[in-house]
Each structure stands twice: as structure tokens, then as C-alpha cells.
Design a protein around this nucleic acid. Structure first.
Length: 548
RNA sequence: GGGCCCGUGGCUCAGCCAGGACAGAGCGACGGCCUUCUAAGCCGUAGAUCGCGGGUUCAAAUCCCGCCGGGUCCGCCA
């Protein structure tokens, strides 16, 4: 709805309606700073210019008034806008937020090597990717999500070697795989002869040796099985798990090599090497022993993506930046569309960078379990059966973790700290969940008291109510922005502000105790807030609890 | 060494892309609020040379240049 208000303001400003200068403001519902820009060339003061612009404004239904202050032209939304906003929210209900963007998008995210459990760095990837997918879907896109399974290459071979040497314990499968993988790496350092064994595994797998293939599928499958359990627990959904070996089997890798060979100078003395303009580092497509590299298979995967999708997004860690640039460059050479890349910075531990290989990481499972335990402490003396408590604690824990990761801009480096992760005083997700539960509680009581009727009336709005409804009108606007910029943390910030505004309203204006018309009016606001918070939390993959 | 990212109260962050009205939150600190719709909440107080130095501009946390600090990449790894 807010997008419509922006349109109205643009129309009202006519020639001065340049979107670049129209901004949100604490002093008005919208303002334009265009007078500052024009003042100089017109040889007048910003205030004079702003006044002239204001005088020539063509009022529209959604604008109630226009004021000039210090060179700003301030716009205020009309009661009609508020009424329409509320009507849209209440009637669209679970669909509120859709901004009718069209098209198909593939989001590839997480894609962690199945050589061990997801650690908190992967969690950041999964949370950003999954939230992004949800936001894009909400915006109207037809979204598919992929997890690209690295079952080839050296890491995978070492994983299989670990299994051959040490077997798998009966731990959760991804943790069992990690144990053997870590041991195999230690073994490799001690005994470089084993390197030959790794190479042999890689070679045989790529050549399609049936016996070896069974082993790869089994071990990688085990790792993936554990990872999928964790993802499910975190509400992270993937439509497909695409195994990279598929692209060797279906001939796409062969095709990509041929195409590159035709388009580009490929050095083939031994390994296949391409030198790319603008890149210091060359790209190796094939090893001397004939096996392909990750980038070769990934190029094939992206050729496949090009065939199936109009646009695709990859969520990648910052360490993949150079890699992603080279991949895109190669795709461009082949006249294929490169992916849009969302880069997120590292999550590091006090003791440094995480490494599955070295066994230095905090696993997602451990994090969830510990946060859940903390949440249970808060619930300890509530009157509630144990099963319900467990359910709420699980949900609150997932919410806290997802929110903690999603609220930070992706380019920000994060330092993981147990004290912070377990401190519920600073868990802003539960703050939002709590506001939602409160709204639900009021509505529940309204129904119980036999007076559930709701009817919004903009004329009755006090300051806090008006502010809240204006904020609610911005939900689709933020979904639009987050979709365009591929920045999911906008939604986290937005929901925080809605919860805050709702708390202000809650404190000052009793709902159930007020008289008929006012009661119905406020109940409508509570219901609309509930809808926005619920839809918003679902975007973040957080379960909107009705009681907590 | 070169490329990219980050640097905002004691701590964690938003704001930076499209420069404008007093730099916003949360945690922590201090002082308050549960016979009133869920206190996982709310109110108040203290706390900021927006890393440093230049520049552009009527106006810079925001744009440009240089520097400093942190991270990361520069594998026939993924």
C-alpha cells in the first residue's frame, strides 16, 4: 500500500516527482528534498523553491496535506489511505505482502560439502538463502531452491577415504562422516603416500567405476542425510538436491569443455588451462590426469540453469568472490547468463576461522541444542505441559538463531560468541514473536468475550495507532525493496519496528476495555498487526507462536 | 605485495547504494513499572571525535583521494 502512496506523491509532484528525492522521514509520511537540488540553479532559497513546488501540487486521494519546512516538502497520508490499507491487510490476510513481481527465479544456497555437519558459517548461508527465497516468493516470483551437492573432487574423495579407513560411527550421520574425514586428513599429513589413493578415488569416480561410485554415493549420502535433518529443523527448505556428478554423467561437462575450446584459447599441455583477461589467476578446467575441477562442473551446472531458468541467484561466502567472478566471466564468454551473486562475509570463532577439515567449528546442531536449553529455562515455571514447552523452546531457539544471522547485513563480518548467542535478553526474535503472541492473546479474549467484531475507522486514530498503521502499510514496500536488492535483513529491521510500534500502542491504548466503536477500531489494528507480524515471521522462517 | 569487504556509544548492529531536518535500536550500567488486554514486556537517565587525514558541496556517517586497523582471496581445493 505504501507503494501506492509513493506513486500518489510522485504524481502530485508532476515534473518534480523524481523518485530519487522522495524519501521516508520522521517528520512526515514522505518528503522530497528536490528543492535543495533546484535551489542553486534557480537562484532561490530551498524554502522558496519548495513553496513553489508545494503550491503547484495536484492533490490526490491518498495525500491529506503538504507542508513546507526548511526546504523540505512534506507529505501526509489521508484517512482514505489508512482505511484502504487496513482493508487490504484484513482482506488479503495471508497474502498481504505480495507485490506481484513476475518471473521464475532459482536460488542456490548452502551447498555445503557433505564432509561433515553444517557449522555456523553454513547456517548464515542457509538463513540468508532461505529467507531470500521466501521473500522472493512472497513478492510474487516463482521460486525454486537448490542445494548443489559436491560429491566429486578432492574433499569428497578424502571423505570416502575416511570411511574406508575408519568406517562410520553411529553418531548422527553428518557428525560420523566428519569424524572419519578429520581423521583421514590427519592421516594424509602423516602419510603422503595416501595422496595416491585419494587421486585414484577421484579418477575412478569420474570414470564411472561402479564399485567406487557406490561408496561415494553412500558416504556423501550419509553426510547429506545429517545435513538435511539439520536444515529441516531450521525450517530451511530446498526443492532439489542437485549432485554435481550428474553433470559429468549427462554430458554437460563434456559439452562445456568443447564450447570453451571453440571460443577461447585453452592451453592443453597436460592440464587444460584458460587465462582470463583481467584475472591474475588462471582457470584450470582439467587436471593433468584428466579429471575435471569444481569450476568445470559448476559451469556445466550453470549451463543447465540457463536452459531452465530466466534468472538465478547464488548465495556464497566471501571466500568465493574471485571464484564467482571467474565463473561469471567464463559464462559470458559462452554467451550464457551469469548468476546474480549474494556474498556474505565470514562467521569466525574467537580462535579463528572455522574449518571442518581441522575439526574446528561450532556445529549448527550444537548451537540449536544449547539455545533451546536456554529457552527452556525461561519456560521452567510456566503452567504448561512439557510437550508444549519443548515445542515452544525449539521454536524460540530456531527463531533466535535465524534472526541473529538474518538481521545483520551480509557484507558484515560476524564473530560468534557463545555468551551472546545464549543471551535471551538480546534475542530480538523472541521480542517479535512475543508481540505476535500478545496480539493473538487479545484477539482470543475478544472472541471469548463474545465481542469479536472489528471495524477500523481512520478518523479515530490516535498518534500511536496512526504510526502503527502507516508502518503496516509498508510491509509490501519492504518486500519489494528486499527482493530488488536481495537484502533479507531489511525485513528483520522492519519487523522489529512493527513490534516496537505495537508495544507503544499496547501500553497506551487498552483494547478490550474501550467502548464499542473504539474497541472495534483497535481490534482491527491488533488483527492487522497480527497479520503483518505473522506473515513477516514466516518470511524469516520463524514460527509465529500464538502463545508463549 | 595486489584485489575485494568491514571499521558508527563499553558490546552487537541499523542508517551509506540514490548526500539533507537533532546519528537510530538492542545488550550492558543506573533508577522505576506486575490487584489493569502475556513483565520473553514497558518507562526514564547516563553514554558517540560516525577509524584517522584531506577533498567535493549551501549541506558528508553517506560521495572522492590517501592512510591506519581487522577480515578474506590470490591451489591441477571446493
Amino acid at each position: 500500500m505504501f507503494l501506492k502512496f509513493i506513486e500518489d506523491v510522485k504524481r502530485a509532484l508532476k515534473d518534480y516527482g523524481d523518485e530519487k528525492f522522495i524519501k521516508e522521514s520522521e517528520h512526515a509520511d514522505l518528503c522530497t528534498t528536490i528543492a535543495f537540488k533546484l535551489a542553486k540553479e534557480m537562484g532561490k532559497s530551498p524554502d522558496e523553491v519548495a513553496s513553489e513546488i508545494a503550491e503547484n501540487i495536484e492533490m490526490t486521494d491518498y495525500i491529506s496535506s503538504v507542508h513546507v519546512v526548511n526546504g523540505y516538502v512534506n507529505f501526509f497520508a489521508s484517512d482514505e489511505f489508512l482505511n484502504d490499507t487496513m482493508e487490504v491487510i484484513l482482506s488479503q490476510d495471508e497474502n498481504y505482502g505480495n507485490v506481484n513481481l513476475k518471473g521464475e527465479i532459482l536460488v542456490e544456497h548452502t551447498s555445503a560439502n557433505p564432509d561433515g555437519p553444517l557449522h555456523i558459517g553454513h547456517v548464515r548461508n542457509a538463513v540468508i538463502g532461505d529467507t531470500l527465497a521466501r521473500i522472493l516468493r512472497k513478492a510474487g516470483y516463482d521460486v525454486r531452491t537448490h542445494y548443489y551437492v559436491n560429491d566429486m573432487g578432492r574433499q569428497a574423495a578424502v571423505t570416502v577415504l575416511g570411511y574406508e579407513l575408519f568406517g562410520l560411527s553411529d553418531k548422527k550421520p553428518d557428525h560420523a562422516v566428519a569424524d572419519s574425514y578429520i581423521k583421514a586428513n590427519v592421516e594424509l599429513e602423516k602419510n603422503p603416500e595416501l595422496e595416491k589413493k585419494v587421486e585414484e578415488l577421484m579418477l575412478k569416480y569420474e570414470q564411472g567405476d561402479a564399485e567406487i561410485e557406490k561408496k561415494f554415493k553412500f558416504v556423501i549420502g550419509k553426510g547429506l542425510e545429517g545435513i538435511r535433518q539439520t536444515l529441516k529443523r531450521m525450517n530451511v527448505e530446498h526443492d532439489e538436491f542437485v549432485w554435481e556428478s550428474e553433470f559429468v554423467k549427462n554430458g554437460y561437462v563434456e559439452k562445456i569443455l568443447k564450447m570453451l575450446d571453440e571460443k577461447q584459447k585453452v592451453e592443453k599441455d597436460g592440464a587444460w588451462i584458460i587465462r582470463l583477461e583481467g584475472f591474475e589467476k588462471e582457470v584450470v578446467l582439467k587436471r593433468e590426469n584428466g579429471t575435471t575441477l569444481y569450476i568445470t562442473r559448476d559451469l556445466a551446472y550453470h549451463m543447465w540453469k540457463n536452459e531452465k531458468f530466466k534468472s538465478f541467484v547464488n548465495v556464497l561466502g566471501a571466500d568465493h568472490k574471485l571464484y564467482a567472478a571467474q565463473l561469471s566471466k567464463l559464462l559470458e564468454i559462452l554467451n550464457l547468463k551469469p548468476p546474480e551473486v549474494v556474498i556474505f562475509e565470514f562467521v569466525s570463532l574467537p580462535e579463528g576461522k572455522m574449518s571442518t577439515r581441522k575439526g574446528r567449528f561450532v556445529s549448527a546442531d550444537e548451537l540449536i541444542d544449547k539455545v533451546k536449553e536456554e529457552a527452556k529455562k525461561i519456560l521452567a515455571n510456566r503452567e504448561m505441559d512439557e510437550k508444549k514447552k519443548d515445542e515452544i523452546a525449539e521454536s524460540v531457539a530456531i527463531a533466535a538463531i535465524r534472526f541473529d544471522f538474518v538481521k545483520v547485513a551480509p557484507e558484515k563480518h560476524m564473530f560468534f560468541d557463545w555468551n551472546q548467542a545464549l543471551d535471551f535478553e538480546r534475542q530480538t526474535a523472541s521480542y517479535i514473536q512475543y508481540a505476535h503472541a500478545r496480539a493473538c492473546s487479545i484477539l482470543r479474549r475478544a472472541v471469548d468475550s463474545g465481542m469479536p467484531e472489528i471495524e477500523f475507522n481512520a478518523e479515530m486514530c490516535n498518534k500511536e495507532e496512526r504510526k502503527l498503521v502507516m508502518l503496516l502499510s509498508k510491509f509490501p514496500y519492504w518486500i519489494y525493496k528486499a527482493s530488488k536488492d536481495l537484502r533479507p535483513h531489511y525485513i528483520a529491521e522492519y519487523l522489529l519496528s512493527v513490534a516496537g510500534a505495537f508495544n507503544d500502542f499496547y501500553r497506551l491504548h487498552p483494547v478490550l476495555k474501550s467502548e464499542s466503536a473504539e474497541r472495534m477500531h483497535r481490534l482491527a489494528i491488533v488483527d492487522a498487526t497480527r497479520i503483518v507480524l505473522r506473515n513477516g515471521l514466516e518470511l524469516l522462517g520463524i514460527k509465529p507462536l500464538e502463545k508463549m
